[in-house]
Amino acid sequence: MKSRREFSPQTLSVLAALCEQPSRWQHGYALAAATSLKSGTLYPILIRLADRGLVEACWQEEPQPGRPRRHLYRLTADGLASATEALNAPARRQPAGRAARDMRQPNGRGVAAPAAQ
């Protein structure tokens, strides 16, 4: 079983944001807005998750006119399972209270992890 100890609070918040709509591709700025993370924190997390096969990334096929193509992200099947397990796992004792609140409400909208598929 995946535990919260495997992921940092910031990583858990990214996973929670991606879990909101697991099948939908999301872009970096939306994830940053949802998690309140800076780009210098968000992208290294996404890189690590992609290296572990938990997140897949691709380039936007039809970019907006005059804008460069955007990089899109979503959870893989393994990523969804790991994220669901980690988000539903009991929180750590010490920083748990705040971390859990942060995880459940990374953007203040009360995002909850979806049930495992």
């Binding site: 872009h27 970096g28 700025y29 780009s39 992208y43 990334a57 804008r67 460069p68 193509r69 955007r70 990089h71």
Partner: peptide, 8 residues
Amino acid sequence: AVWAEAHQ
């Protein structure tokens, strides 16, 4: 990706 996203 970070650079492309900066336009948003």
